[in-house]
Amino acid sequence: MLSSIFLSLFMSFNLHAQSTIKIDGSSTVFPITEAMAEEFQTSKKGAVRVTVGISGTGGGFKKFCRGETDVQDASRPISLSEMESCRKAGVKYVELPIAYDAIVVAVNLKNDWMTEAAVPDLKKMWSPEAQGKVTQWDQVNAQWPKEKLKLFGAGSDSGTFDFFTEAIVGKAKSSRGDYTASEDDNTLVMGVANDRFALGYLPLAYYEANKAKLRALPVKNAEASAKVKSVLPSRETVENATYYLARPIFIYVSEASLKKPEVREFTEFYLKNAAEIVPSVKYVALPAKAYTMSLEHAKKNRVGSIFGGKEPIGMKIEDLLKREASM
């Protein structure tokens, strides 16, 4: 009698399992996926449960390639080594660009000497060779003050760090180490806002929420002396790809999970509502055409990545669409 009660107690462990969609990955993509999960669950009236974690793009891909998650949030394309571990585990995936994110180079409001950020100047400040050597503003440009250069940037686990280093230094993850690094972008905002001689880089959404405290520098991908117009970060310049430090961000959906109706439904829901929800969480949406194209890819289960493990730097949306179409 007693044992039968225990048995049934134990059995109830596995009774009525609701379907759950597991998502993990980048903290940059999190606000978008969180909003999608919120809306999707509301629309399904609780029949499907969605969980979203923040393990970072790299940490998330580890889980994704072990088959532990259904959807992966990624602030950069899948890397070659991650492709390899996914392939070994037999995990195939559909790559879906879902929005644009931009990185802003910001200085203190009282900084009156820097009017634009030329990529070669930024490289002088941020390259690994600068470590311990370039410590004063006048070492970058002789006309700038003889004051200590204080740098603030993303921590080395974030996709923002990977992208910035590749775009500025020329090699992903190659950066000086003697700067204030934080995974919490609000720390960077505070750091730059409180020090006249500070410079930092942070995601566009954080700049937009703190416009009164920081000044964004227009960026130009040329020597400071070159006669090229520098471009301020904004929704428009990110959309028309004139702003240099912008990149697409993605979700990756496991092909095996796409066989589950709720995951397929969620993916389609994501792409159909992205144009509306992405701007509401302060990101720049892709053109409508990109979403319809991605929807086609998801429906046809087109697996693989179009980036070959490289960062898409300075890629216009048309290029992205062309690459997507040629897949």
Partner: peptide, 19 residues
């Protein structure tokens, strides 16, 4: 592996039927 976004509750500890 605590998650960050969860918009549902755990299953209730009490059920209407046996046990």
């Amino acid at each position: 592996g605590a998650l960050t976004f969860i918009a549902f509750l755990p299953h209730p500890p009490v059920m209407a039927e046996f046990p």
